[in-house]
């Protein structure tokens, strides 16, 4: 794998919205989500992104019962984008392309 090639997708999990059901862990094809060790404010062990491997497929998003606990991002393919394209920059998401 080309170390410099970024992942196609990226995940943001709102730790405090997650109830730790684990359905996203089960759903994620590249197994890029796991249950963390820390309790959130509701007393659940929340799911966390392992930090690598997300393909942006969105299956975890659909499998998650919470409205916005998971946000899935996709890598913008700059080769196909016009220069002026105003894609939404990711706030608070840690790019995990260059691990």
């Amino acid at each position: 794998m080309d170390k410099l090639k970024p992942d196609r997708g990226l995940l943001k999990i709102d730790e405090n919205e997650c109830k730790g059901c684990g359905l996203c862990v089960e759903a994620c094809p590249p197994r890029a989500i796991r249950i963390g060790d820390r309790l959130n404010h509701c007393g659940y062990r929340a799911a966390i992104y392992t930090g690598a491997g997300c393909t942006g497929c969105g299956i975890c998003f659909m499998a998650c019962p919470e409205p916005g606990a998971i946000t899935v991002f996709r890598l913008v393919d700059r080769r196909t984008l016009p220069v002026s394209d105003s894609h939404v920059p990711v706030e608070g998401a840690v790019p995990c392309a260059s691990n």
Binding site: G9, G56, P67, T71, L75, R78, V88, S98
Partner: peptide, 20 residues
Amino acid sequence: MSGAVDPDYTVAHSRPKAFY
């Protein structure tokens, strides 16, 4: 990230607008 072009990401799946 060293040496690589900063990858930019767009939102693909997020909380639907039909939710409050």
